[in-house]
Design a protein around this nucleic acid. Structure first.
Lengths: 136, 136
DNA sequence: TTAAACCTTCCCCCATAGTGGAAGGTCAAG
DNA sequence: CTTGACCTTCCACTATGGGGGAAGGTTTAA
């Protein structure tokens, strides 16, 4: 099948399919005599895999590293487990950071409600956003 | 004071100070006869403000919009309140999304521990990352 | 035959917040 | 007079996941 059909069955735009090829996510396909890319079912499966992996928060580079292992003949399970563990740690850290930010924002919003815009001076730019509240 | 000194007192690299100027966060400074930028205390205060606003999760573009209002002679408090409200919503959404992702990752990790790498086939690439678990 | 719908490669663009380097001007001390 | 520490501008690059459009070749259906 040609790239347009693969795009239809996989749900990725043709541009994205070519882009994935440059990133090593799809193998260089065989070409028809006129230079058109030729794909098969396996390529569609691979695109599904990529989408699933992206859903799990993996970057294209990480997904490429998994695929490289598989193409080298190694079962990538171990590597996948490591990636998932690291990703979980990463996600937990980001959640924690966002939690801190949420607290900070709530404080600033409360403060904004208690301050009078009349008191906001030119030098402050805006007095709501002043000190990095030393309460923490 | 020249840019190097402002860099020292503000804690921002000179490159960043020039960069902020291009983004409208700092006014175009006066120049000495040889073309060097001349700064004063107010510029240092403004850099402090920028840092505080960044701590609150505002982007440079948003901070610039606040500064523009102030420079136009309008107290930006109202606008700041709106930005902070929107940012809080945004942060809460991201936390929720990351929560979903964390759940997904935990499921995948548990799954990875229960699957045998021996069963991982070439077609799967890796069987751990298979279906977008329809359990949700 | 010809127009639409494909396909190809190429290079540039988005946002984010800067960082790096090159090539050149200036100024103070030794 | 020269060396080092400043300063200037300009252009390119980082990571992320693509999108836009140009310029050209091919195929398919009317």
């Amino acid at each position: 099948m040609r790239i347009g059909e693969l795009a239809t069955v996989s749900g990725h735009p043709t541009r994205t399919i070519r882009f994935y090829e440059t990133r090593g996510l799809l193998p260089e396909p065989t070409r028809t005599t006129n230079g058109y890319r030729e794909y098969n079912e396996g390529d569609s499966d691979r695109l599904d895999f990529i989408r699933n992996a992206q859903t799990a928060g993996l970057t294209l580079a990480e997904i490429a590293s998994i695929i490289r292992l598989r193409d080298d003949g190694t079962a990538p399970c171990r590597h996948v487990n490591e990636l998932l563990d690291a990703k979980l740690v990463d996600v937990q850290e980001r959640i924690a950071q966002l939690g801190v930010l949420r607290t900070e924002l709530n404080q600033l919003i409360r403060r904004g409600r208690s301050l009078d815009p009349e008191d906001c001076t030119v030098n402050d730019i805006c007095h709501i956003l002043r000190p990095p509240d030393r309460t923490c």
